[in-house]
Design a protein around this nucleic acid. Sequence first.
DNA 1: CATGTATATAACTGATAGGCTATATAACTG
DNA 2: CAGTTATATAGCCTATCAGTTATATACATG
Lengths: 119, 119
Amino acid sequence: MLQNSNSLNATFAALADPTRRAILARLATGEASVTELAAPFTMSQPAISRHLKVLERARLITRGRDAQWRPARIQAEPLREVADWVAQYRQFWDSQFDRLDEYLHTIQTEEKKHVRKRK
Amino acid sequence: MLQNSNSLNATFAALADPTRRAILARLATGEASVTELAAPFTMSQPAISRHLKVLERARLITRGRDAQWRPARIQAEPLREVADWVAQYRQFWDSQFDRLDEYLHTIQTEEKKHVRKRK
DNA sequence: CATGTATATAACTGATAGGCTATATAACTG
DNA sequence: CAGTTATATAGCCTATCAGTTATATACATG
């Protein structure tokens, strides 16, 4: 279950920054150069380059080469891993699972109360 | 689209740590005390308390009170936000969307090439 | 080959993360 | 109320993050 631990660490850390999420959103419409990606932001070009490096290390993007441009492309795999990870918890908000959720929670709470009192 | 930016920042940052993800996995089976949550780990109790505080600030857990115990319970909402966010990118790995994905990518790439050459 | 454009890297800085130990607080229990 | 248990907080340390400016590198082109 935790074999993707390192991968998820890097992916979630990369996604924790709004600039990087905005870059991904932009790349969802197609590849783009660093300058194009930097345009919507007030921060410097090196800052964007570093954000891209973080995304690249998390494998959320790959970089190409087109003359002096280094176009970035979004990569699906880490996003799929996030989707798979969070799907584990779907029961907690999906009404389809409410009954099971409630049941599991009830028996768990009862057990804990007993355990604690015994100690 | 970015109205949940702050919330997602905290949520993704919280999820970037494997200890905190393990705590959430444990809480998916029902509420638990700090000591119970700390048991599987080699780190100190204060370290676990701090991890719980991070999860709490991200609203991924809430804390209760049961005598000297402070049971933690998982909260669905931020996880649902993550699921919603990542669902935006479902097209990139779901084969159902491959054709659209390919089409979008092709026209995007063509456009970019023209723009770059003109400059 | 000199210049312009696109991007990366280096060096610095201030803030935050995540661990520790020691200590404080809160509640139960004899 | 003294001792025990559960948890939180404080203070410290080291590492990493996210930004900056200055500079280097890579490529295109007149």
